[in-house]
Design a protein around this nucleic acid. Structure first.
Length: 466
RNA sequence: GUCCCCAUCGUCUAGAGGCCUAGGACCUCGCCCUUUCAAGGCGGCAACACGGGUUCGAAUCCCGUUGGGGACGCCA
């Protein structure tokens, strides 16, 4: 069987983490089975769909490297086909025109609720002739759902689930303006596009029963369903804006790598033994629906941080430098680029995001004289410390510029003067980077190069402040 | 309110009746390494929600309770 999956977001906002995971699972499932992964934009809600949101979906998927096969399908452009399907159902007596007004609907829901029943449409026009239609009311088309029995689904994740048909009311297929609803469009499109597996959030599980009835009425074989649990925030509720950054794009802006994001999303609700770091190819090889859990998972930033730190270290320095560039305040000249490359191996051990890395790399990219913080100035102004710098300066000026030679030079100096090596190293760190924390001091010296290092020491002896 | 789903360390999870005195990872704590901070290494803390069954044996199967979540639109 040739597997065909789809990711079908509605373009009504940024690409949500939960949606991204749904896309990932669909993509992985298709790739694992050498199948096809399709993208369909569900833009039938003309009020809320925006071009910006469509672009956000494209950008997000591309960033995550979730490439889709074939042309993007815009659902609204297929509306005519959906409408035709609805009209056929009316002709066959499987759907009907309903002239109930919004007020009437509100009332019947309120009444049902008062009786302890689920708030549903009561079938007011199910058996009435359109001849009785009130003038001036444009009707909707509703599906005639079975009122007896039950609807059953064998969900790939949720297992067998049955719902009494009494719980289901006659859903709207065509709005009063004649446009198709989501329920109609998904079914017609999934069928037309040959979707074999619908993998989506389990907030759609209850919709599935209605859709199954629609497949039945249309005489089509439904696809297989896999309803994956939602992603929750720290408080255990469905991840939403109030949990903070919730869009894929915001994590890109925050300096996370798509590799880390995908790995993180993958492990939310799916596992493979003790494996934690799972790169793309491995994920394709291992991914299966059978190991998708049924319980919702909470998204925690600490995990993403950890994975991001890992992937930053794993990426080759030249590539990391390229990815870092958008986060740098300045555009690099060749000299700065070389310095960045030299400093990256040790810098990337110390940071979790590209933003952190950019911040920590900055001292390497600027030119002497440095602008020191007051904290730095306090250290540098201290008379004893200035004497030390004065003592070191000529030694460094005469030294060979390799980490090994520099270490020998400095060790000899501290031993001769009986100063703790750590004290000198920390002082040099302040003078050379203006920071309290940096990679090993010899690495710093080497990455900066002799002339820049000496220039900085000089500026440290005559600090301007900043 | 009605229906549906879920339940292993704080978090993500492994676990398909004996391999479980429950494993890994994140977080956290301690130690080692050490010129700072990291990284790395070693170690500690920490969980089968509760109650009944079934079984020689249950984290695993069944029932109930509790707790959580989701869905109930002319949104998707």
């Amino acid at each position: 069987m040739h597997v065909v999956t789809r990711f079908a977001p509605s373009p009504t906002g940024a690409l949500h983490l939960g949606s991204a995971r749904t896309a990932l699972f669909n993509w992985l499932f298709a790739r694992h089975h050498h199948g096809t992964f399709l993208l369909r934009i569900e833009d039938t809600d003309r009020e809320r769909s925006t071009e910006t949101s469509v672009q956000a979906v494209f950008d997000g998927l591309k960033w995550l490297n979730l490439t889709w096969d074939q042309e993007v399908v815009f659902q609204f452009s297929r509306a005519a086909m959906h409408v035709t399907a609805a009209h056929q159902l009316v002709e066959k007596g499987k759907a009907y025109y309903c002239y109930a007004t919004p007020e009437e609907l509100d009332q019947m829901r309120a009444e049902a609720k008062a009786k302890g029943l689920p708030p549903r449409y009561n079938g007011l026009w199910r058996n009435r002739s359109p001849n009785e239609a009130p003038s001036g009311v444009r009707p909707v088309v509703r599906l005639k759902m079975p009122q007896q029995g039950a609807t059953h689904v064998d969900d790939l994740v949720q297992g067998p689930v049955t719902v009494s048909n009494a719980q289901l009311d006659d859903m709207v297929l065509l709005r009063s303006d004649g446009t198709p609803t989501y329920m109609l469009s998904v079914v017609v499109d999934d069928h037309a596009m040959g979707i074999t597996h619908v993998i989506r959030g389990d907030d759609h599980l209850t919709n599935t029963f209605r859709q199954l009835q629609l497949y039945e009425a249309l005489g089509w074989t439904p696809p297989q369903f896999a309803h994956i649990p939602l992603i929750h925030g720290a408080d255990g509720a469905k991840l939403s804006k109030r949990h903070g950054a919730v869009s894929v794009d915001s994590y890109r802006t925050l300096g996370y790598l798509p590799e880390a994001m995908c790995n993180c999303l993958l492990r939310l609700g799916w596992g493979h033994g003790d494996d934690e770091i799972i790169a793309r190819e491995q994920a394709i090889a291992w991914f299966d629906i059978a190991h998708v859990g049924k319980a919702p998972a909470r998204f925690e930033l600490a995990r993403l941080d950890h994975l991001n730190a890992h992937y930053m270290r794993a990426i080759p320095d030249a590539e990391l430098a390229e990815r870092l560039k958008p986060f740098l305040a300045i555009s690099l000249n060749e000299k700065q680029h070389q310095r960045l490359l030299k400093s990256l191996p040790s810098l990337k051990q110390r940071t979790k995001t590209l933003i952190d890395l950019a911040k920590m790399a900055t001292p390497y990219l600027t030119e002497a004289p440095l602008c020191y913080t007051t904290e730095a100035l306090e250290v540098l102004y201290s008379p004893g410390n200035r004497a030390i710098i004065d003592g070191i300066f000529p030694l460094l000026a005469a030294s060979t510029w390799t980490a090994v030679a520099l270490e020998t030079t400095l060790r000899e100096f501290t031993e001769a003067k009986s100063i703790g090596f750590g004290k000198v190293a920390q002082l040099l760190r302040w003078a050379l980077t203006g920071c309290k924390v940096s990679p090993g001091i010899f690495e710093v010296l080497e990455a900066l190069g002799q002339s820049e290092s000496l220039a900085r020491l000089q500026s440290a002896c005559d600090p301007k402040g900043g």
